[in-house]
Amino acid sequence: MKCLVVDDSAVMRKILIRELGHIGIGPESIIQADDGKKAVWLARAGDLDLILMDWNMPEMKGVEAVAEIRCLGIATPILMVTSEGEARQANKAMEAGANDYLIKPFSTMALFNKVSTLLAHVAGELGLELICPPPRRAYSVNLDEGRIGPVIEE
């Protein structure tokens, strides 16, 4: 399994990598790019099983990268993961060659449903499963005293 996560935000890439871990795709299976051009370059190798693609990035927009990847004849499933949530934009991404669309903010379950559908043909051999994220916790944080208080399970 090899997954490419494309987002100009390093924080969002970390979130996506964590969430992919919750559905059975570990960090050892993930490579990253922070713009569309790098994504196209990494996709050229043709050995990717899945691409998660942001829309708004400074060098090349995600939708342009998707179109270029498809022009290269690369059929890797592409999931757009973006804040651009209008229907016309989802349609534009699908016309460019994206396979599905996930709007930020997204839940682990929503990501799992999208990814498992896109990888349905190989999901069994990849062993994809929803590994439940840790339970919600309430932290008592006191920054002035520089400590985090007792962790309370909800």
Binding site: S9, E84, P105
Partner: peptide, 19 residues
């Protein structure tokens, strides 16, 4: 991460507002 994360927060808030 602080700067990047705050940027991503406003990106998601603005995206939902835009819809």
């Amino acid at each position: 991460d602080r700067k990047d994360g705050v940027g991503e927060l406003v990106n998601m808030i603005a995206g939902s507002t835009k819809i």
